[in-house]
């Protein structure tokens, strides 16, 4: 431990700030890589200690992944699921935001509808999905609608909180200078709600994609959830893991390449010091 500590300090003397900043940029990425590698090794070790069809090692999963990628199935099902995630996300964010901002802005309306929000927050996802399929049939709209309905109450609660923090002086400025409706939404409302939109988005994406898999499992004939269901019946754990890991990777990439840069862009005015 001590050797490591002194090595660390010798590596980055205070004078060499250039090297240090490069190091501070690389160290977290390196840590993640090493950590994931360690997990793979541990998994490999466990799989070789208890060899079983129900517990394949990373190499087997990788092989299935390559096979499914080569015959195109992987990308087809990933694409279908991703499409559903995106559709449900957009529907839930728009409807949830509108309702949330209304409730946050009008106290009486909020008092009346608050019990409904609490009720919907506590209905299990599975119930909404089953009822959606029963009432609206085993179709795409019912699937996406059911996922959105599961997410909407969370968005409502977050955006209601956001609407309560709106600063009326900006709205008054907009009234005096006769801002149009679109300008009000774009330049007054959305920037103030941005942190809440970001929070709702973050928790939204991860919740939604998990529910989408269930919806696919119960009533769709494609998508990652459907594939997992299929391989569950075939007892093919390697394929189940291959699809799961591929989809987790896709969602992490979206978080890294889409959500975070968008957020950085939206908050650029905040980061510069006064």
């Amino acid at each position: 431990m001590t050797a490591l500590g002194t090595d660390g300090t010798r590596d980055a003397p205070p004078s060499m700030s250039g090297r240090r900043s490069l190091a501070t940029a690389l160290v977290p990425a390196l840590t993640v890589a090493v950590s994931l590698l360690a997990l793979c090794l541990l998994w490999n070790l466990a799989a070789s200690v208890w060899p079983s069809r129900a517990f394949p090692g990373p190499a087997q999963v990788w092989q299935v992944l390559l096979r499914e990628a080569a015959n195109g199935d992987l990308f087809y099902h990933l694409g279908v699921t991703l499409g559903r995630v995106a559709a449900a996300y957009i529907v839930a964010m728009i409807i949830g935001s509108v309702i949330g901002v209304l409730l946050g802005s009008y106290r009486r309306v909020d008092r009346f509808f608050n019990p409904w929000v609490i009720l919907f927050l506590n209905i299990p996802a599975l119930v909404v999905i089953v009822l959606g399929y029963i009432w609206f049939g085993l179709n795409e709209a019912a699937a996406i609608g059911a996922v959105a309905v599961n997410k909407i109450p969370n968005v409502v609660v977050t955006m209601r909180e956001g609407a309560r923090t709106l600063d009326p002086s900006y709205a008054e400025m907009a009234t005096v200078y006769r801002f149009g409706r679109l300008d009000r939404i774009r330049h007054i409302l959305l920037p103030q709600l941005q942190p809440y939109l970001a929070a709702a988005s973050r928790s939204g994406i991860s919740l939604i994609w998990k529910i989408v898999l269930v919806v696919e499992l119960l009533g769709r004939s494609n998508g990652v959830g459907f594939q997992i269901h299929l391989y569950f019946q075939l007892f093919d754990v390697a394929a189940i893991l291959a699809y799961t890991l591929a989809f987790v990777a896709v969602m992490l990439f979206i978080e890294l390449l889409l959500v975070q840069p968008v957020e950085r862009h939206a908050t650029r005015w905040r980061r510069r010091p006064a």
Binding site: V176, R178, H187, P191, Q194, W269, R270
Partner: peptide, 16 residues
């Protein structure tokens, strides 16, 4: 026919 106001606080949009 327009009115303009300079409020007690500057009331500039911080994000613009």
């Amino acid at each position: 026919n327009r009115i303009a106001a300079v409020f007690q606080e500057p009331t500039l949009l911080p994000w613009r």
